[in-house]
């Protein structure tokens, strides 16, 4: 994502609106991977953009806003999950509701098995997997978003894959 200086929108609002049009869908999809449901995912993304409004004047490099938004989505998903948890909404849904578009998309036993296995992973591992295999980010980019070391990313990903392999092998 880049806001080109030569065609910069007239205001921060316009610039952020442009960013929203360009990235909201991708960020909501990413947030769905973290939160487990679309409504919360949209909330999290809205919140990330509201935060962006707030910080816009303090962001030096507006071309690097997308990593900021991804970090905000990760943090927002954590907060939403935690809030749900403390409010008693303890689980990521093991499966989307039967009537949902997501459920319709998860056709086939294999995808459902992967979904269930991913849902059982610790949050950090789910985050790393989504960043790596959904957003196709490099380890140093994931490390920057999660604010952990590159080694932590590597280790976490390896553990997550090992856990998934074990779970899916057991279930198959």
């Amino acid at each position: 994502m880049t806001v080109h200086s030569g065609s910069a929108p007239a205001s921060a609002e316009d610039a952020i609106d442009e960013l929203y049009r360009a990235h909201a869908l991708g960020l909501v999809r990413f947030a769905v991977m973290l939160t487990g449901d679309r409504v919360t995912a949209e909330d999290v993304v809205q919140e990330a953009f509201i935060g962006l409004y707030r910080r816009w004047d303090r962001i030096r490099d507006h071309a690097s806003v997308l990593p900021y938004l991804r970090t905000a989505v990760v943090n927002g998903a954590r907060s939403a999950h935690r809030s749900r948890k403390r409010a008693g909404l303890l689980r990521l849904p093991a499966e989307p509701p039967a009537w949902s578009a997501e459920a319709a998309a998860l056709d086939g036993e294999d995808r459902r098995a992967v979904h269930a296995a991913v849902s059982r992973l610790p949050r950090r591992q789910r985050e790393v997997l989504a960043l790596k295999y959904y957003l196709d980010l490099a380890e140093h980019e994931i490390a920057a978003i999660l604010r952990v070391s590159r080694g932590t990313v590597s280790t976490t990903a390896a553990r997550a894959l090992a856990s998934l392999s074990k779970q899916l092998k057991e279930e198959s």
């Binding site: 909201a24 869908l25 769905v32 991977m33 949902s100 578009a101 998860l106 294999d110 959904y134 998934l164």
Partner: peptide, 25 residues
């Protein structure tokens, strides 16, 4: 397992359609 993951993420992402995203606030 990585292939299966990518397939899962791709399919799940497609379930969120662009025209259903809320407008910006």
């Amino acid at each position: 397992i990585e292939d299966r993951l990518r397939d899962y993420y791709e399919v799940r992402a497609r379930a969120v359609e662009a025209d259903a995203i809320r407008p910006s606030v």
